Simulated assay, not measured.
Amino acid sequence: MKLTIREIASLAGVSTTTVSHILNDKGQRFSEEIREKVLKIVEEHNYSPNYFASNIIKNKSRLIGVIVPDITEVFASTLINLIRKPLNEEGYNLMTCESSSSLEEELALLERYRQLSAEAILMFTSSKLSEKITNNRYHGIPVVFIDAGINDNYYGKIFFNEYDTAVRAINWLIKKGHSHIGLITANDKQHAFPERADAYYDALAANGLSLNKQYVVKTEFTIEKGYEGTQKLLQQEKLTAIFCCDDNLALGCYQAIYDAGKVVNQDIDIIGFDGVEILKHIRPKVKTLHLPFGDFGDLIATKIITAIAEPLKKQPDTYFNMIFNEGEE
C-alpha cells in the first residue's frame, strides 16, 4: 500500500513540512541524520510523490501541452515524435489533445492546459488566434505555433519554399510527358496552404496547359479524403498523374490507385507533400516534396525551451529549403 507524506512523517517522527522539503531538495537546513531517516523510509516503501502535487510545490509542472487537429495526421505525429526526445531530455513531458480543427475546441484546450499549469503549448492550427493570444502568450503561458504563418508570431515564424519546390515538381511531371495532371488540395475550411495549389495552376499556365476544373479536388487532409478524391479523379480517363498537397492525401491516393487495378508510377504518377517517414517504406515508391524534418524538429524544441526560459524574448523568423529529388525512384 502506498504511503502518504503524512504517514512517512509519522514513521520518521517529523512534520509533514520537513518530509516535503526533503523530498523537494529543500531540506538543507535539516540534519543529515533526519534526511537519511526520511529517505530510508521512502526507499523501503517505494514511495513516489503525486506528480501534480509535487510540481505545484515546485511551481513547475514540466508539462508541455500539444494541440493537433488529428493525432493520426502524419505531419503532426512525425514532428511530435521528433521533439519528444530533446524535450524529455530537458525534463519535460508532452500531453497531446485533438482539436478536430475546431476553433471552439482549440480555445477549450488552451484553457485546459492553463488549468494544468502547462509551461508551454505547441499548437498546430489553421485558426487566427491573435484576439485570444497576445505575443504568443495565453495567460502568461508561451504558445509556439505551427500554422503556416497565419498568426503573428512573437517567437518567430517558420517558412518553407513551398511554392518554388511545388512548381519544380509539376514541371518535372510535364517534362515526363504528362499533360493531364490532377490536383488534390485544401478545401479552404480547415487548412491554409494556398501556395501549393497556386504552384500547380501557375506551372500549368507557364507550360501552355489549360486548367481543367474536373482535375481539381478540394478536400480535408486525411488519408480517407485522399482515397475519395482519387476515386473522383480516376473518372477522368485521360488522367496520368496526381499532385497531392499533403502526404496523408498521397497515402489515400496510393491505395485508391491500387484498388482501381492500376499501377503507381506506371499508370498514374503520384507526387506527395511533406516527406513523412511512412512514404519511405511503401513500394512502388511515391515521390514527394521533402521537408527538412530533422532541422524542423530541432528548431521547434529549441523554440519551446527558449520560450519557457525567456517568455518575453522575441525569436527570429526561420527559412528552410524543401527538397524535390527529380532522380529518385
Rank of each mutant, 00 (worst) to 15 (best):
L209E: 03
H191V: 04
R35H: 02
F221L: 06
E36I: 07
L109Q: 03
F145A: 06
A108Q: 11
I300M: 15
K60E: 13
T318G: 12
Y138G: 03
T222G: 10
I34D: 05
F193M: 08
E106P: 02
V144D: 02
L63M: 13
E119W: 05
T17I: 15
A256C: 14
T230L: 03
L183D: 01
R196T: 02
S101G: 02
S179D: 12
I133D: 04
F320A: 10
D267N: 15
I323Y: 11
T96G: 00
I308L: 14
E328K: 12
N151T: 03
E89W: 04
A199Q: 02
G177L: 01
K213T: 10
P284C: 09
A169E: 07
G229W: 01
R62D: 12
H178M: 09
H139K: 06
P316C: 15
E131T: 09
D198S: 13
T306Y: 09
I121R: 08
Q190E: 15
N55V: 06
I257M: 13
T16V: 10
H290A: 12
R112V: 04
R114P: 00
K2F: 02
N59F: 01
L183T: 01
V286N: 10
S100D: 13
L234P: 09
G13I: 11
D147M: 00
F296A: 10
N321R: 15
E106R: 05
G13H: 09
G275T: 13
G294Y: 11
N88I: 05
E228P: 01
T230W: 00
A120N: 05
A12K: 04
P284M: 14
A256Y: 10
T185I: 04
Y201K: 07
I170Y: 13
M123T: 02
L63K: 07
G182M: 02
G149Q: 09
E33W: 07
E73G: 06
G229F: 03
R112C: 08
N46D: 11
Q28K: 11
Y227V: 03
E105A: 02
T318I: 13
V68E: 06
P142V: 08
L129G: 04
R112E: 06
T222R: 06
T288R: 13
L204W: 06
E329I: 15
N55P: 03
Y227R: 05
K225P: 00
D317Q: 14
V66D: 03
S48V: 13
V74K: 11
Y163G: 07
I158W: 00
G91T: 05
T185A: 13
S10Q: 12
P284I: 13
D246H: 12
S77G: 03
K60L: 06
K85C: 01
G261A: 12
E224P: 01
N81R: 04
K225D: 14
I67V: 12
